[in-house]
Design a protein around this nucleic acid. Structure first.
Lengths: 183, 183
DNA sequence: ACTGGCATGTAATTTGTTACATGATTGT
DNA sequence: ACAATCATGTAACAAATTACATGCCAGT
C-alpha cells in the first residue's frame, strides 16, 4: 500500500490539503500507523489529480501560496475500495529501539536506559493522542475506528506496563557486560 | 538504521552467511523487528567486506555455490557500537491491517473480518516463534534479550486478546454501512 | 532577532524490493 | 513430476526521504 492510496483514503473523510494530510499523519488516528513526508505527499496528490481520482480547488490566501484543497471523486472512491479489497500484507515493523535492546549488552548502561526512557515517553505521548482521538464524537459513531484506536491503546498500554516493570533487565545486561570487560 | 548496520549486529552473535541472516530475520528474535530481502542482504555484506568491517571465508560445497561465511572484525564491532550509540529514531510502523480497519466501514463485512482473522493468525504465529526464542538457553543468559522478547510477547498478547474480544466492532461497522446503502 | 507555523513544490539521493539467472538435492 | 530448501548474485525498478527553494505572519 503506497502513499497515494492512503491519501485517497483520508480524503474519504473530507477534503484536505497536502499540509493538512501531513498533520493527520502526525496527530490523529494515523499516528503509529502511517507516516509520510511532504516530499511524497505533494507529488502523490498531483498524480492522483492527473488520474482523475481527486479534484483540486485552489483557495486564495494572502501572503502564502494558494492552498490546494483536494476532494475525492467517485472514481477515486471506487479505486480506493478496490485497493483495500485486494488484501493486506503482514505488517513489517522496523524498530531501532528493539534492535538497540537486542544488542543492549554491547551498550553503556546509561545509553540503553536512555533509549528505554525515550521510548516510554514516545509511547505515553502516542497514548495521549489516541485517547483524544477516542473521545472525538466522530470516532464514537464509527465502531471500526473504535476498534482500530482500541487496538493501538491496548498495545501501547501493555508495552508501557511491561517496560516499566522490566527495565531493570536492561541495566542488568549492561552491568554483566561491564563485569566481563573488568575480568 | 540501515541493513548494513543490522547485518553487522547479527554477526556479533557469531559468523553467518547471507542466507542464514535472512533466516534469522524470519524465524528468530528479529521477527517483527526487522526484515530484508536477499537483494539487499547480499550487497550489504559485500559492501561491509570492502569496508573491512567483516571478513569472508568461503566454504566449499558440492553442487551448490560456495557458502560465504562472514565474521565481524574488531573495526566492525567498534563501528556497530558507535552506530547504536548515535541514538534511535521513533519507530515508524506501516500497517496495512490498521489502515484497513480505519476504513473498514467502506469494506464488505466478510473482507474486513477476513483481515482480522488473518492478522490474528499472523500474531499467533509470531507469538509461538517468540516463545521458542524465549526458551533458548542462549537467551536466558541475556537479560536484555529477555526484555526485548518479553516486550514483543506483551504487545502480541495484548493485541490478540483485544482483537478476539472486540472483533464484533468491525462487523458492526460494515453492517452500518450496508444499512446506509439500503436506505 | 529568531523560532515556529503555514503553505507548496522539485531534484538529488538513498534505500530497498522484485524479478531474473543458475543449479543441485531432498522430500511428496 | 513438482515444490521446497539450500545458496549466491545482479539489474531494473519503485518508493520515499532529505535537502533545497521560496516567503509571509505571529509570538517570544
Amino acid at each position: 500500500m503506497d502513499i497515494k492510496t492512503v491519501c485517497i483514503g483520508l480524503l474519504t473523510f473530507g477534503e484536505a490539503s497536502g499540509y493538512e494530510i501531513k498533520k493527520l499523519f502526525e496527530d490523529g488516528t494515523f499516528n503509529g500507523v502511517f507516516d509520510a513526508s511532504f516530499g511524497s505527499i505533494y507529488p502523490a496528490l498531483t498524480r492522483l489529480a492527473q488520474d482523475g481520482l481527486v479534484v483540486c480547488r485552489e483557495e486564495e490566501q494572502s501572503g502564502r501560496p494558494d492552498k490546494k484543497v483536494y476532494s475525492i471523486t467517485p472514481a477515486g472512491r471506487a479505486h480506493f475500495i478496490a485497493e483495500l479489497s485486494r488484501g493486506i500484507q503482514p505488517e513489517k515493523a522496523r524498530s531501532e529501539f528493539l534492535i538497540s535492546m537486542i544488542f543492549a549488552h554491547l551498550l553503556p548502561t546509561d545509553i540503553a536506559l536512555r533509549y528505554v526512557g525515550q521510548t516510554l515517553e514516545d509511547y505515553r505521548a502516542a497514548l495521549a493522542r489516541l485517547h483524544i482521538a477516542q473521545e472525538d464524537p466522530a470516532t464514537r459513531a464509527m465502531p471500526n475506528l473504535q476498534f482500530a484506536i482500541g487496538l493501538g491503546l491496548a498495545k501501547l498500554t501493555a508495552a508501557i506496563d511491561y517496560m516499566e516493570n522490566n527495565k531493570h533487565l536492561v541495566a542488568a545486561a549492561s552491568d554483566a557486560a561491564c563485569a566481563q570487560v573488568g575480568e
